[in-house]
Design a protein around this nucleic acid. Structure first.
Lengths: 143, 143
DNA sequence: GTAGACCTGTGTGTAAGACACAGGTCAATA
DNA sequence: TATTGACCTGTGTCTTACACACAGGTCTAC
């Protein structure tokens, strides 16, 4: 398969295929005309990369995994370790987004009935300046 | 205030202050020794920028807002319009992260009791290859 | 033969800073 | 006064995971 065929076959873009190829994650065969051709083993590797990306692995993670496997070792322990890390990060980001989302919609609501005001030398926008976050800190277990 | 003082005062880094300064969002006074000094108006502008960032505005958004305000116009309509956009994007990303998080923890669970396997020419890692996403598509309102 | 559609590699752009680096400045100490 | 060490400066490069641009080569159909 050629670059664009491979991309189309899996619903991505030629640039993505080229990107992985630049990083040597994919190793196509160069034909006489200079085009890259991806044999079945490379096609299945591409499928693998896409699956791993969908699971939240970074491209650098995938490089490590592929490297491990290319030495004949089972990459499974590494894969398990990495996904724990990535899951923890995702959890953190997820909570941050949750809070951000709450604050944003709270702001939108608070601003609904506020008037416009012209700026001053010390105030760019009174809406943003006056915004009160919902719950700055959970009361946790304070009695 | 000097760069690092300003950064410390608001719990950020000198690089952040310098970044906004490079973009001309902040306009410090240069003293004879070459150091940048931020007068009170710039300090309150920095506070404003940080508040806006916390609310999910991009730096480019903030540039637009500041630009509007510097022409003496009320930036409020722009601010309201922008936060609607950003909120919609955040919502999308939030749902994507939710799904990712579910898939990641589902994968972790599925892999808990699976054995390690050595790679083959067409398989880098059987864990990733064999992963089944939880709910590829919500049944929505199919009877 | 040539037009138009595809392909190529390479280089640059993105967001929001983080980090590096060579050198200047300042306060305190020896 | 000289020096040490902590801070400061601007500038340039790095990060992620591609997207986009560009000049030019190749292929297919007419």
């Amino acid at each position: 398969m050629k670059v664009s065929e491979l991309a189309k076959a899996y619903g991505t873009t030629p640039d993505t295929v080229r990107y992985y190829t630049r990083l040597k994650l994919l190793n196509p065969i160069k034909s006489e005309n200079g085009y890259k051709y991806y044999p079945p083993t490379e096609v299945s590797r591409f499928k693998f990369i896409l699956s791993a990306r969908q699971l939240g692995f970074s491209v650098s993670d995938i490089q490590q995994i592929v490297d491990e496997a290319s030495h004949g070792k089972a990459a499974c322990p590494l894969v398990r370790a990495l996904i724990k890390e990535r899951l923890a990060e995702t959890e953190k980001q997820f909570l941050a987004m949750l809070k951000l989302r709450e604050n944003m919609s709270s702001a939108l609501e608070q601003w609904e009935c506020k008037e416009d005001k012209a700026p001053t030398s010390t105030m760019v926008c009174h809406l943003i300046d006056s915004f009160e976050p919902l719950n700055e800190e959970e009361p946790s277990d304070e009695k």
